[in-house]
Design a protein around this nucleic acid. Structure first.
Lengths: 216, 216
DNA sequence: CAAACCGTTCCGCGGCGGTCGAAGTGTTCC
DNA sequence: GGAACACTTCGACCGCCGCGGAACGGTTTG
């Protein structure tokens, strides 16, 4: 609902030089200003200007070490935003040199690539009984083309929530079964008394979770 | 490693008018060009220009309906990228009017906000036994300030992988226990023979997953 | 102290892109 | 058919920002 911060953050990633620097830092390690300038293909004074902006926006953190200065990503949110933008890049074809990178790589401080996705899905399959109790057929969802499970970095909570086929199936279940009501013309959702009861009983959310909550 | 697509995608989100339009569509429903022009506070001809670009970049899809044209988000990836950028907006303070939105809202086609995060964590807690078998103490991780579980939209796979404290703990475990080796100066990770064996035995990944894989 | 190096600031140049006015095309309603 | 409406294209203006050149603190080395 506030579009200024979105545009401001995107504007910082919109410059090819800054994007190259951020991508160079995507392994979670730190690099000197000069190294980043070479990565981006610009002069040191130009890189300095970019790095200053990225630090001011708290996307990077700087650490003075001797006569050189080391930069690294400020946090997971930054790495995740960069990754999600990489996926929007249109062309789903990757150069052959990236094949190994595609299989297993580190993303900031965790495992990514095909192997990372496979591990994730194994962990999430453990939640299967809960979904089954709601009448959601995981096997059927898996048969569809759509990625079964996705996470979405939550704008307000800065933590992930379930998206993908399972996320959509859950929301469908909530609204059809009267747990949640969609507000007209807004993204807002309202929890019904029944929903409040069911979220505690079926999902296992603590009862006092709903106490300090505006609106029902 | 290819920074052009990142910058190009970010540039589309970097304009306040386009960002406002995308945010208005974040509930997953469709809107007409005129409505979006009003949302963004620009003239219709200006909105038309923006919408054309967003459609060309496959971020939006257009559907001609009578004399009006309806636009909607092209997919989850777009919604997720917008959400992750929203989180980078610096100021963690939200206007009071957004309190209800913060608690429960829909993000494209799934539940988001505090409630969405709570449901997600309940589902993921079900994976606890697997992590415990690896010697990862979930309770200890939960005590830290850091969000326990995060997902990262995978650049190559377009599917999520585990990030957050658990993701970092997993990668630490993989490298310390000799499942994976970090390549120098690259994000690339190499699976050792031991890792190959352990991923199958401990995580439950199928054995032939590693067969069609470059490098080891 | 002098030299070398890293990073930074100031400055003017140049180009990309967002904006609105005006005019053109297609659709719907009377 | 004619008027009203939704959307689009064209053209011109203007502001913003990335860029390199030159010059300036700060730190390390000989």
């Amino acid at each position: 609902m506030q579009h200024r911060p979105v545009a401001a953050a995107a504007a910082l990633l919109a410059d090819p030089s800054r994007a190259a620097m951020l991508l160079a830092l995507m392994d979670g390690r730190s690099r000197t200003a000069k190294t980043l300038a070479l990565d981006a293909g610009v002069t040191p004074q130009c890189a300095s200007s970019h790095l200053k902006k990225l630090v001011a926006a708290r996307m990077l953190v700087a650490e003075a070490r001797g006569r050189s200065k080391h930069f690294s990503l400020a946090g997971h949110e930054v790495a995740e935003a960069v990754e999600s933008l990489s996926g929007l890049g249109g062309s789903p074809r990757f150069p052959a040199a990236a094949r190994e990178l595609r299989f297993a790589r580190c993303c900031y401080d965790h495992l990514a690539g095909r192997l990372g996705v496979a591990v994730t899905e194994r962990l999430l399959l453990a939640g299967d009984p809960i979904l089954r109790a709601l009448g959601i057929d995981v096997a059927q969802l898996a048969a569809s083309r759509r990625p079964m499970f996705r996470c979405c970095v939550d704008w307000t909570e800065r933590r992930p929530h379930v998206a993908g086929a399972i996320g959509a199936a859950l929301l469908r279940h909530y609204t059809r079964d009267g747990w949640l009501l969609r507000a007209r013309g807004s993204r807002r959702l309202v929890v019904t008394p029944r929903g409040r009861e069911m979220f505690v009983r079926e999902i296992g959310i603590e009862g006092d979770f709903f106490n300090s909550v505006p609106g029902t």
